[in-house]
Write a protein that binds this DNA or RNA. Structure first.
Lengths: 346, 346
DNA sequence: CTGAAAGCGCTTACAG
DNA sequence: CTGAAAGCGCTTACAG
């Protein structure tokens, strides 16, 4: 009953390099040259080939290309799977967009830290797909075990805001300290002298940098930095709320609290509310990252916008340049951050 | 100076099927059988091979496997890139976890709708990586142009909560209408008789289902559904805020508002706050989805939890079963939803 | 500027 | 239960 597929008419998307070569009247090598934008093809020949490519809807088979070229054209993104995905959403979008531009594929490898079988997971991930290079958003760029493994496997990587710069690799940074300095100064200028600070997860460079900026601004303006006003948080809502509770229990509670990210600032807001404090009347609150959350809270948060998407796109772009032997660019300038003033501060 | 790589010692992860065969003293076909868990290998032979695999850290080359097997072992996830990524985060995690279990790779294809060159994007995406099957979270399962294209390319797909069930494909649903019914009933039981409703994006099945549940609950309890209490939103914060403004401007404003997702409910909360309304004293507010946002707002939102992650994992699992010729399962029961009562309702 | 040959590392189809 | 041969669709290395 069912007819055998006709040989004459190719199914859409099933054409091979041989079909194109035949239709264009050239060798497969010439088709390969045209498709890969290599030089040394006469314009007329190139046109003939492109015309056949279009007619047959030819797309090179990625598997065949990888196998013969000993290159996978695959990048990996290794990240810690967070509850609040805003940061990773930007990292993902930036990386995807860079990959799309250069026709790379992106494979994801979420991790839950600490990960006892990290080495095994990553080995399998990298070897099986022959991942050519890896993007490491914070805090992955400081997992020494991971970095050692990648170096051993000779897989180049790009880190986004690591604490320690990985020698010989792509590192993309931002002016976190400067932004924190300005934000603190902004509060001081508004008259605040007792400013609480909730640190982030110590594994992230942002935590140290943001705290340093806070300290420097206090110092510049002759406000003494009091240890009792500083608490350790972990970048999540609950730790922010808990730290706020401690700060607000102080005999002399601060008039402003800087949380090292928006999710913790949301925790501060909730704790303050539950105590009947009015914001910003009784307490000013600021965060970092300008996530969607920041503008949905009440009152909308004063925060700092980092260009995460652009940073990820740059990291991936530089990494692919490196993989393709483009001249090593001078290290990128750190990206600037921007203070976004909303209504959570007096 | 530099020594040529020694032939004797293989670099980690670079072993091929030939190396394993040699070490185990068998043919490459036998190695292939063992690695792919095929039957008809003597236990002793299997052990020898596995031992060599372990010693050499052998992992089959995905490109070679694809090319020779005429299968890519790649799934695609096509989605609309949202501002608020909570829903997609769960879809992504569920899909990734199903793929990992079955050793598939996942490729992402975010889209911005409406997308004029959708056909071209998707064709390239599917053909180049030889994507075997595609996951379509809402609202992708109702883009007729997309479905037509996938059928034409003979790429099976799985839809998550589509409006219309795609015949012959995997469809995963949840009890959206029932949950909305219960939520509305909950409000009625608390004494509310004037309940505003903000619809979601009409392209999503959830919008119609949630509205239907609302209507049915009103009807059951003899509360007339008044058109002026129903507004169109689009699942985003701004549209929720705008709709709330209209509802609260009404001469007889509602005492409760149901927003069809949490992000719109956040907009309702903000609008109410700016008018100095107290929540839930003056106005009860509920959302849907139980995103992280819901528990970070003030007051924390009463909402409905959908098991999105599980739904995505199921969709991907069923799709892969289908690709591998497993008996077509009976259509999955719709997933149950759960009402989460917090403090935004009296 | 163009092409013929070899080979990437697996699986398929077949034989025994 | 096991294996020898062919081939997937490209790129590499080389020749002219």
């Amino acid at each position: 009953m069912a007819e055998a597929p006709k040989r004459g008419k190719l199914q859409k998307g099933k054409a091979t390099i041989f079909d194109v070569a035949e239709q264009a009247g050239v060798s497969i090598k010439t088709v390969s040259r045209v498709v890969n934008n290599e030089p040394n093809v006469r314009q007329r020949t190139r046109d003939k080939v492109l015309e056949a490519v279009g007619r047959l809807q030819y797309r090179p088979n990625a598997a065949a290309r990888s196998l013969s070229g000993r290159r996978s054209w695959v990048l990996g993104l290794i990240y810690e799977n967070p509850l609040e995905f805003s940061y990773m959403k930007d990292v993902l979008n930036g990386t995807l967009s860079a990959c799309e531009e250069r026709e790379y594929s992106l494979l994801l490898r979420p991790l839950t830290l600490p990960s006892p079988d990290l080495v095994e997971h990553i080995e399998r991930f990298v070897i099986q797909a022959r991942v050519e290079g890896v993007i490491l958003p914070a805090p992955m760029g400081d997992l020494s075990e991971l970095l050692r493994l990648l170096r051993e496997m000779k897989v180049p990587f790009a880190t986004i805001t690591p604490k320690t710069l990985a020698a010989g690799q792509v590192n993309v940074l931002c002016e976190d300290r400067e932004a924190s300095f300005s934000l603190t100064e902004f509060l001081i200028n508004r008259g605040h002298r007792s400013i609480g600070f909730i640190k982030g997860d110590p594994d992230h460079s942002a935590s140290g940098n943001r705290f340093a900026g806070y300290q420097q601004a206090l110092e510049k303006h002759g406000v003494s930095c009091m240890e009792r006003l500083v608490r350790q948080g972990y970048f999540d809502f609950d730790s922010g709320k808990a730290a706020a509770a401690e700060l607000l229990d102080l005999p002399e509670a601060p008039t402003a609290i800087i949380a090292s990210n928006d999710d913790m600032a949301a925790g501060v807001l909730l704790e303050a509310r539950q105590r009947g404090l009015s914001i910003p009347g009784d307490l000013s609150v600021v965060g970092f990252d300008d996530t969607p959350l920041a503008s949905r809270l009440w009152p909308p948060l004063t925060t700092v916008r980092q260009p995460i998407r652009e940073m990820a796109e740059t990291a991936a772009g530089l990494l692919m340049n490196k993989l393709n032997g483009k001249a090593a660019q001078p290290p990128k300038e750190p990206f600037a951050c921007e203070i976004v003033i909303r209504e959570s501060t007096t």
